[in-house]
Design a binder for these strands. Structure first.
Lengths: 347, 347
DNA sequence: ATGAAAGCGCTAACAC
DNA sequence: GTGTTAGCGCTTTCAT
C-alpha cells in the first residue's frame, strides 16, 4: 500500500523518533534482523550484529516496547498487588520482588488495594489489559468473580504472604502460616507464665491475616483454659495506636499481665509509651509483637516478636515466576517460608 | 499451520480474548464507536453507550491497553525514578504520587537507581520506550547525556526533592533547600550553646543532598568560628550505623558536645544506643537528625530534627503534571515545599 | 542466518 | 454522532 508520492510520508505523529526500519536501512539489513539482533543476539551473525549496533547508535534508536508487546501479545510487566504501602512489610516484599525481576528485565506494576477485595479485582482487571507476563497478589482470599477470572489465567500467578493448604492456592504460592505464628507466640507467653493475655490489633476485618494470628493465639490460650480477649482499632497501625492500646488494656483489663500485639509498630509504640509512663516491661506488663522490624530490636528492653522473612517472600515469589517463564517448572508449587520467634526481654 | 479455508482466519494467537470489533459486532456499531464510548463517553449518544456497555459485559471484553498506547503513541505510564527504596522518605513520596496519579488513571513505573546516575540514565532510556505520559525523577543532577536527552523531552517532567535555582530545573520542580535545612539545624545547635559539633552521615558521595545539608551546616558553623568535622560511612543508613557513629565520635572527638546526623534513622540509632550506654542526652551529648520520622518523636527524649514534607512533595509533583496534562499550565513551575525545625529534647 | 508479508488491537484523521 | 480507512512499530509465520 502506501502509494508514497515523492518520499517520506508518515501520516501520523510519526517522524519523531527513529524506528526499527530506520535502523535497518542504516545498517543495510531488514528490520526483522534488527529485531532479532536486539531480542536474541545469538541468532544473527556477529558481523551483522555489530553493524546493527553501530546503526542503532548512529540514529539514536530507542526501542518501542509498546509495539513489541502488542505484536508479541506479552509485555514485560508483572503487576504486584499489595493491600498497603504504609506497612513496611509490603515495602520489603516489593524490594525482594523488584530486585529479582529487574535483573531479568521485568517491570513491576504496583497496585494498592487498601485491604479491599473489590479494589483488588478492579486493579487486576485493569492490569490484564497490559498483557502482563505474570501476576503477583497478596493473600488467598479473593472475590469469587476474581477467583474465577484468575483460574482461567494462563500465565504464572503467585499468591504471597500466606501459606496455602494443598489445593487451596490458584497456582503458585509463597508464604507462611499466620495461624501458626499467632499460636507460637501464645505458646511462648504461656511458657513465660503470663496468665491474662490480651490481643490488640488494627483493622482486623480487612487484614484477615492478623485475624488468623489471633485465631492461633486464641486456640492456644483456650487449650490452656485461658480467655483470649481481643481489642481492635479501626485506624491503621501506628505508634500512637500502640500507646493508646496500652492505656486501654490497662484500663479495661487491670489484671492483664501481657499484651500480644498484631504487629511490631503497635508493640513498639506501646513499649515506648510504657517507658514514658514509668511502667516496667515485662514486670508490670509484658509486650509482644509480630514482624521482626529492626527497631524493635534496638529498644530497651528488646521486643519479643515473631519475625517473618519478608524480603525472602519477595525473592522466592519472583524466582518461582522466572523459573516457570524460563520453562523450568518450580520444584515446589507451594513454599512455606516459616517464621521465627525472637526472644527479646519484653515478654 | 492453520490454513483455515473460508472465513475466520486469525493468523496468530488471536481468538483468545474478545476485541473491540467483537464488541462492536455484538452491539451493532463500528469499533471506533466502542472505542469512543470507552475513552470519551460523552461523545456518543446515551443509548449507543448503553448498548455498547451491555455488549462489553456480554462478551467479557477486557480493553487492550497496549494496542491503545501504540495507536495513540502514549501510555498512561509515568516513570518515577528514586535513588532508594530502603529509605522511608522515598516510600512516602511515592505514596503521595501514587494516590494522586491513581485517581487520574495513571500508573507509576518504579525505577530504583541505588544512587547511581548511570543507572538513572539506563532506567529512563528504557522507560522512554514505553511512551510515558510524563516523567518524575529525583534531584537536579544527571549525567550530561541524560540531561541532553531530557531537555529534548516534550512531555511534563518533574525533578523532585531539591528546590532549584531559577533556570536550573529542566522543566517542573518540587523540593526544598537541603543547604538551608543543614544551616537551620546548625543555627539551632549554636543557639543552644553547643560548641563542638560533628556531622555524621552515610553514603555522602552518592547522596549529594546529604552533602548539601553538610555544606549548609559547615558554612553556618564556620561563620561562628567553629570547626565542622564530618564523619561518613559507606553502608546505607541504619540504626546500627547510628550507634557505631556515636561511639566513633565520642572516641575521636572527646570534647564533642553535639552530633548532627544526616538523617533520623542514624540519629535514632544513636539516641537508643546512648540510652543503653547510660549516656544522658542532651547533657552528655546532644543529638540532632533530619527528616522528621514519627518514631523519633516517640522516643524519650524526643529527637530534635528538621522535618521535610515528603508526602506533599509527591502530591504536588503529581498535581503539577496533571495540571499540565489537562492543559492548565501550573502557576509556578518551581515549588519550594520548605522544611520545619522540630525542637525535641535531644538537642 | 536472513527476509517478505501479514497482522497484533487499537485510535487519529477525515469523511458524512 | 458515527463510520471508513490507514496506520502506530513491532514480531510472528513461513520461506529461502
Amino acid at each position: 500500500m502506501s502509494d508514497q508520492p515523492p518520499h517520506e510520508r508518515r501520516r501520523r505523529k510519526g517522524l519523531q523518533s527513529p524506528t526499527l526500519s530506520d535502523v535497518a536501512k542504516e545498517a543495510g539489513v531488514s528490520s526483522i534482523t534488527v529485531s532479532r539482533a536486539l531480542s536474541n543476539p545469538d541468532s544473527v551473525r556477529d558481523s551483522t550484529r555489530e553493524r546493527v549496533e553501530a546503526a542503532i547508535e548512529r540514529v539514536g534508536y530507542v526501542r518501542n516496547m509498546v509495539a513489541g508487546s502488542l505484536a508479541s501479545a506479552s509485555s514485560h510487566f508483572i503487576p504486584v498487588i499489595v493491600p498497603s504501602l504504609s506497612n513496611v512489610v509490603f515495602i520489603e516484599v516489593i524490594q525482594g520482588l523488584q530486585s529479582t525481576f529487574e535483573s531479568h528485565g521485568y517491570q513491576i506494576l504496583l497496585g494498592n488495594t487498601d485491604y479491599s477485595m473489590k479494589r483488588e479485582e478492579e486493579l487486576i482487571r485493569t492490569f490484564l489489559g497490559w498483557s502482563p507476563t505474570a501476576l503477583v497478589t497478596t493473600g488467598l482470599r479473593h472475590q469469587p468473580s476474581l477467583a474465577a477470572l484468575l483460574r482461567r489465567y494462563r500465565r504464572p500467578l503467585v499468591e504471597i504472604m500466606e501459606f496455602a493448604a494443598p489445593g487451596e492456592a490458584l497456582d503458585l504460592n509463597v508464604g507462611m502460616s499466620h495461624y501458626g505464628a499467632g499460636r507460637c507466640m501464645a505458646e511462648h507467653l504461656i511458657a513465660q507464665g503470663y496468665r491474662q493475655v490480651v490481643f490488640a490489633g488494627t483493622q482486623m476485618d480487612g487484614n484477615y491475616r492478623a485475624m488468623q494470628r489471633y485465631d492461633g493465639h486464641r486456640d492456644r490460650l483456650e487449650r490452656a483454659d485461658m480467655e483470649a480477649p481481643l481489642l481492635a482499632w479501626e485506624s491503621p497501625s501506628h505508634f500512637d495506636v500502640g500507646a493508646r492500646a496500652l492505656d486501654a488494656v490497662l484500663d479495661r483489663y487491670p489484671r492483664c499481665d501481657a499484651i500480644h500485639f498484631a504487629d511490631d509498630v503497635m508493640a513498639c509504640g506501646a513499649l515506648l509509651h510504657a517507658s514514658r509512663e514509668g511502667l516496667r516491661v515485662p514486670q508490670d506488663i509484658a509486650i509482644a509483637g509480630f514482624t521482626g522490624l529492626p527497631f524493635g530490636q534496638s529498644l530497651t528492653p528488646r521486643l519479643t516478636t515473631v519475625a517473618s522473612p519478608r524480603e525472602a517472600i519477595g525473592r522466592l515469589a519472583a524466582t518461582q515466576i522466572i523459573d516457570r517463564l524460563e520453562g523450568r517448572e518450580p520444584q515446589r508449587r507451594r513454599i512455606d517460608v516459616g517464621f521465627e520467634l525472637i526472644r527479646g526481654e519484653s515478654a
